[in-house]
């Protein structure tokens, strides 16, 4: 599928990747999951993703740095930030730095799917969200 959305999911909590990968694949995305931000950055250098979903607080490198790197590499890529620390100031920072959206933990898989659908629309390749099998 040529219009399949390529998503990179980065969160140091392994369960997040484990659950969200099938959840997003069900709406027709191809998902690569990373726990280590450095490995994720390496992958981003190699491959162009449509959407990058990243946690903000991680060991080694934080989400803001990932955001900057992705922007530098590929400005087209939509970036969605995840954090357990739902603070307005943090959200504003992320948005100012060019994040597409911001999602606070804990969230439902559908919350992320909706944001991804919005991002896909913004990218010009809308996905059929209802195809998730719900």
């Amino acid at each position: 599928m040529s219009n399949e959305l390529k998503i990179l999911l980065l969160d140091d909590e392994h369960i997040v990747g484990k659950r969200l990968k099938p959840a997003l694949e069900k709406i027709g995305c191809s998902v690569e999951v990373f726990q280590d931000p450095l490995e994720a950055i390496k992958r981003i250098e190699e491959k162009e993703f449509d959407i990058v979903v990243t946690d903000i607080y991680m060991e080694g490198m934080d989400g803001m740095q990932v955001l900057e790197k992705v922007h530098a590499k590929c400005p087209k890529t939509k970036i969605i930030m995840i954090t357990g620390y739902a603070m307005i100031s943090l959200a504003r920072d992320a948005m100012e730095k060019g994040a597409f959206d911001f999602i606070a933990k804990p969230f439902k898989p559908d919350d992320l799917r909706k944001i991804i659908a919005k991002a896909a629309e913004a990218l010009g390749s809308p996905i059929d969200f209802s195809a998730s099998g719900n």
């Binding site: 909590e13 369960i15 969200l20 099938p22 933990k105 804990p106 439902k108």
Partner: peptide
């Protein structure tokens, strides 16, 4: 702690939702 607590809560939320879905 509030921040830290969101991680397991999120994991539970995602897991339970996916369990219900599938």
């Amino acid at each position: 702690v509030a921040h830290e607590l969101n991680n397991p809560l999120n994991n539970i939320m995602l897991t339970v939702h996916m369990l219900m879905e599938d």
